[in-house]
């Protein structure tokens, strides 16, 4: 899913969500991604307080 910025067409960040395979042990796994182009980085994202200062 997206955490949309401005419009859903500009997904600043999004998360892939998956359920566990065992229905008796339901869980959600979440992998988040951010749009490197939007935040102005080309490598792995670091918190804005350290990378964008």
């Amino acid at each position: 899913m997206y955490i949309p910025v401005n419009r859903s067409t500009s997904p600043f960040a999004h998360a892939a969500v998956q359920t566990s395979k065992d229905p008796n042990d339901p869980a959600l796994s979440v992998t988040g991604e951010v749009n490197g182009a939007d935040i102005g980085v080309s490598g792995k994202w670091e918190p804005a307080s350290s990378s964008n200062s």
Binding site: I3, A13, H14, A15, T31, G32, E33, V34, N35, G36, A37, V41, S42, G43, K44, W45, P47
Partner: peptide
């Protein structure tokens, strides 16, 4: 998204 990744890399 504290452990998020850059989607391109």
């Amino acid at each position: 998204f504290d452990d998020q990744r850059n989607q391109n890399t």
